[in-house]
């Protein structure tokens, strides 16, 4: 492996890791507020990508602008999903049954995408699709940079929201100790609903970013959910910084391994990390009390 190639993989890994980080933050957020493993997260990701593609196809406007519609829409869907579906489940079996419910939602989305837009592979062609810039000898596609910028910006906003707003405080309190949060007057149901909405909003942003650069098809979400689930376990279930950091490390790892092993085998790094984490440190590397109990 030459130095340039190595550096190029490293940069690509960082760019990929940024997208993983945003999506994993959303996935771990659902778990934090509701103890739900949201299998449909990546299906919504692909749905957002399809919406961006369709928006571009119909209007010819830059797909990034579809965010104006998809982000509020997904937020509302997330709140609705938590309110109308998740809360209907019995608390005792919530974790297991919510997995099945969100799995059903994922299948439904996959089926409907195939039904509406057919199973054909889709890809957005933009004026700047082929452009790339040179960065210390590495060739970086502009679309990847845009996608990363979008992910990094959103993650930054999410961080500010959680760290410096009253809502963020309430959300973190709900994640850490639901009953205690209730005792101090936080309306945890409402907070959990908004948490769900924010989670889905990350899928909307991630999907738009993904659509710039990827060929999409209905069953693509299965390629995303596995790595994302592995990331949140490695990072510690419910820990957003843990998810972001694990996403970065594993994204870079995957990108570096792609050179000697090829794309298929490089993907296995997520699963190897998942099993290793569970064997060595089952609560994940940043997980606290919460992750241990679930």
């Amino acid at each position: 492996m030459t130095g340039t190639l190595l550096f190029q993989s490293l940069v690509l890994g960082v760019l990929l890791g940024g997208l993983y980080a945003l999506l994993a933050a959303g996935l771990t957020l659902y778990f934090g507020v509701m103890r739900v493993v949201m299998i449909a997260h990546s299906a919504f990701l692909i749905l957002a990508a399809y919406l961006a593609w369709y928006f571009h196809e119909q209007t010819g406007i830059d797909p990034l602008l579809s965010l104006v519609v998809t982000v509020p829409l997904f937020f509302a869907v997330g709140v609705g999903m938590q309110r109308l579906l998740i809360t209907r489940l019995r608390p005792v079996t919530l974790t297991m049954m919510s997995v099945l419910l969100t799995f059903a939602v994922a299948l439904f989305i996959e089926g409907m995408i195939g039904f509406v837009w057919s199973g054909t592979q889709r890809r957005i062609q933009l004026p700047y699709s082929g452009d790339s810039i040179e960065f210390f000898g590495a060739q970086i596609a502009v679309v990847k940079l845009v996608a990363f910028g979008l992910a990094a910006l959103s993650l930054g906003l999410l961080y500010l929201l959680l760290k410096h707003s009253r809502f963020g405080q309430a959300l973190r309190a709900t994640i850490q100790h639901r009953e205690a949060a209730q005792l101090v007057g936080i309306r945890t149901d409402r907070v959990a609903g908004y948490g769900f909405g924010i989670g889905l909003a990350t899928a909307a942003i991630g999907g738009t970013a993904l659509s710039l650069d990827a060929t999409i098809y209905p069953s693509l979400h299965w390629h995303w959910i596995g790595p994302l689930m592995a990331i949140i376990v490695v990072g510690g279930l419910g820990s957003i910084p843990g998810a972001a950091l694990a996403a970065m490390v594993l994204g870079i790892g995957q990108s570096l391994l792609q050179v000697p092993l090829g794309t298929t085998w490089a993907q296995t790094i997520f699963y190897v990390a998942l099993f290793a984490t569970l064997m060595l440190r089952p609560q994940g590397f940043f997980g606290g009390r919460l992750a241990q109990r679930f």
Binding site: F31, R35, V37, I39, T95, M96, V99, W222, I225, G226, M229, A230, I232, V233, L237, G262, T264, W265, Q267, T268, F270, Y271, L274, F275, L278, M279, P282, Q283, A291, Q292, R293, F294
Partner: peptide, 28 residues
């Protein structure tokens, strides 16, 4: 043993991951 180290959620995650990893391996 890995799947049952922690309760519930990680069991689900390992169970799905195991299929996905085997699909990769058997295809690759």
């Amino acid at each position: 043993i890995a799947a049952l180290r922690v309760r519930g959620a990680s069991f689900v995650i390992v169970s799905i991951s195991f299929v996905l990893i085997l699909l990769l391996v058997f295809q690759g």
